[in-house]
């Protein structure tokens, strides 16, 4: 098992058609909850490009942990399922503890994110940003149903109220931040409502933030596994509740 690739950022990166400038200063958090059929391929693709991976296994009950170990990525396994926000916070802490990467990113395990988008975001953040957020709405590349588009737009509007920075896509899982920003991030919402909490922390006034157009692939697998559209209602409700519950400081 070659977990050392994670803790040695100076290791020469694997030759890859897209990695001519090397990604030894980047670690990507991949949250895994029962994604055994696809997670191995997703992590292997990232690592083949020379990007270190911290995989947070959120107490998967299928063979996900074994699939992760086969790739040689660093695996952090929750003893009990904590949810998306809980897993991301664990990933951030693990990335800070076990690597000295300059930039820390988030990448979905289900194959809906594109490596080329991540690489574009890495090139962008190196220009001197603190946070680069993926957005599905900056160009028309992502195909989605009008209803999904409407709900995501609404969620973004609700989220934007009170936050300093205007984002076009509040619930995009593809994000990249500097080590300092990651160290300052504290997520208390363990479920999907973490997105609003995270966005609020990432868009703090001092942060140089930009968005990067990304292309999400709604494959049959990610559609069957990922967020059912109805779950947007849950997220919206949690976001509003969280806003009312702890948002006093921002009002």
């Amino acid at each position: 098992m070659n977990t050392l690739t994670v803790v040695e950022p100076t290791a020469p990166s694997t030759v890859s058609p897209v990695a001519e400038d090397g990604f030894a200063d980047v670690v990507v958090i991949v949250r895994v909850y029962n994604e055994a059929p696809v997670v191995g391929g997703v992590i292997a693709e990232l690592m083949a490009a020379g990007i270190s991976v911290v995989a947070v296994d959120d107490a998967s009950t299928d063979g996900s942990a074994g699939e992760i170990d086969r790739t040689g990525a660093l695996r952090v396994s929750h003893p009990i399922n904590l949810g998306a926000g809980g897993a991301l916070q664990t990933g951030l802490e693990a990335a800070l503890k076990f690597t000295d990467a300059r930039y820390i990113g988030c990448f979905d395990a289900d194959g809906q994110h594109q490596l080329v988008d991540l690489i574009g975001m890495i090139r962008t953040i190196r220009q001197g940003y603190d946070v680069v957020m993926g957005s599905r709405f900056l160009d028309g590349k992502t195909e989605m149903s009008p209803l999904r588009r409407l709900i995501l737009r609404t969620a973004t509007k609700v989220f934007n109220r009170g936050a300093g920075t205007r984002l076009t896509d509040a619930h995009n899982g593809l994000r990249l931040m500097t080590r300092e920003v990651a160290a300052a991030t504290r997520l208390t919402q363990t479920g999907m409502a973490y997105a609003s909490e995270l966005e609020r922390q990432l868009t703090r006034p001092g942060h140089r933030l930009t968005e990067f157009p990304v292309h999400i692939l709604y494959t049959e697998y990610s559609k069957s596994k990922g967020q059912p559209l109805l779950n947007s209602v849950n997220i919206l409700a949690d976001t509003i509740a969280h806003r009312l519950g702890s948002g006093r400081a921002a009002l």
């Binding site: 952090v76 929750h78 003893p79 904590l82 916070q89 693990a94 503890k97 076990f98």
Partner: peptide
């Protein structure tokens, strides 16, 4: 749970 996970890793 997070501490357990990090310690085990």
């Amino acid at each position: 749970a997070r501490q357990v996970a990090l310690a085990e890793a």
